[in-house]
Amino acid sequence: MDADDLVILEGVRFSHGPRRILDGIDIRIRRGSVTTIMGPSGTGKTTLLRLIGGQLRPQSGRVVVDGEEVPRLPRRRLFELRKRMGMMFQSGALFNDLNVFENVAFPLREHTALPESMIRDLVLMKLHAVGLRGARDLMPSELSGGMARRVALARAIALDPMMIMYDEPFTGQDPITVGVIMQLIRHLNDALGLTSIIVSHDVAEVSAISDRLYVISQGKVLDHGTPQDLERSPSAWVQQFLHGRPDGPIPFHYPAPDYAEDLLGPDAT
């Protein structure tokens, strides 16, 4: 079982200053699967990705990627490991002083000594895979949001990584773009034999393409399983989240003193 799991998080706790963001998270991500981590905004989903990528260290717990304890890796080994990870950021994070071609070529130029002709071939292949071979000469400022994310995806797979992490890939995109990105994630995962981790709160979209889902809230994993499993989840909380009901265990009101008391109490003038 262990060998099948590419990423293992065990009892991970992480605090930012006095605020506890993750409070004992256990997640296992199987090789070759598309796993989505869902939860309301501000529950530390992006923090999870940064822990997996080694940009943050947990206060306690284990983060294991491909058999290596990420928080304990020395810098050089960590960088070696990161070459085998791709990440697509929410905004795309393209380098805006480089054009599309050079953005995708960036990891190749930095980490390999390939001849220019081979770099060109590789970049065009990656761009073709995301359908943007014709956009190679555009600058990032000339791209739409969806195109920028697809270029970022091409850049993330430039070094043929073993896994890709997607940080909110659908946020703020039109339905067509969402469909295209969904297709791409699933297709690339299966065609290239990747392992994909998606962080998102777009329930319908990710349910359609994910093998497994994790729902986290307030620093804990509430439930996990296949999309069908979660559909039948006994947790009222998970039901509320999945179906987007305004009422349920997550209150509409921020914690406050009693309404009547607040209006009529001693502070009222």
């Binding site: 990528g53 940009q55 960088f79 070696e80 990161r82 070459k83 990870m85 990440m87 950021f89 929410q90 905004s91 994070a93 393209l94 380098f95 805006n96 960036f106 990891p107 930095e110 980490h111 970022a152 850049r155 070094l159």
Partner: peptide, 12 residues
């Protein structure tokens, strides 16, 4: 725009 972060994640 997370470009610095992206660079770190690309082991640069």
């Amino acid at each position: 725009t997370e470009q610095i972060s992206a660079m770190e994640m690309m082991a640069v």
